[in-house]
Simulated scan of single mutants.
Amino acid sequence: MSNVIRMTGVTKKYINQTALKDISLTVPIGKIIGVIGGNGSGKSTLLKLMSGLSLPTSGSVTVNGEAANRRTGKVVSYSSELGSFYPIFTVREAIRFQASQFADFNLAKADEIMKLMRLDPQMKIKALSKGNRGRLQIVLALAREVPYILMDEPLSGLDPMVRETIVKGLISYVDLNAQTLIMTSHEVAEIESLIDGFIALKDGSLLKMADVEELHETESLRIADWMKKAYI
Rank of each mutant, 00 (worst) to 15 (best):
M1C: 01
A141N: 07
T8G: 00
F102L: 01
K115D: 15
F105W: 05
H186S: 04
F85T: 05
T180G: 04
A178I: 13
Q98N: 10
M161G: 04
S77Q: 10
L206E: 09
L176F: 14
N16C: 00
N16H: 06
K168V: 11
N177R: 15
V162G: 04
K202M: 02
I29R: 14
T180P: 12
F85M: 08
K109I: 09
F97T: 03
K109L: 13
I29A: 09
S84E: 13
F89T: 05
K208H: 04
T165R: 15
A200N: 04
A210T: 15
E214L: 07
K229R: 04
I171D: 15
E81T: 15
T90Q: 10
G131L: 04
I5K: 02
M161F: 13
L201Y: 10
V4K: 07
S193E: 14
V146P: 10
P147F: 01
H186G: 01
I29K: 14
G73A: 12
G59H: 04
K31E: 14
I29D: 06
S44K: 08
S24T: 11
V76I: 12
A94N: 09
M183V: 06
K202N: 09
V63D: 04
M151N: 05
E93F: 04
V76M: 09
V139L: 02
T218C: 01
A68G: 06
N16M: 00
G52M: 05
D120I: 12
M209N: 07
M1E: 10
S77T: 12
I149A: 05
D211H: 12
I125E: 07
P56E: 01
P160D: 05
L201N: 11
V188N: 01
S60W: 00
D203H: 11
A141W: 02
I113Q: 14
T45M: 06
K21L: 05
A110V: 12
D22P: 10
D104T: 15
D111G: 11
K109A: 07
L119E: 13
T26F: 03
D22Y: 09
T72Y: 07
K202F: 00
P154K: 03
A143V: 01
V76C: 07
L150I: 03
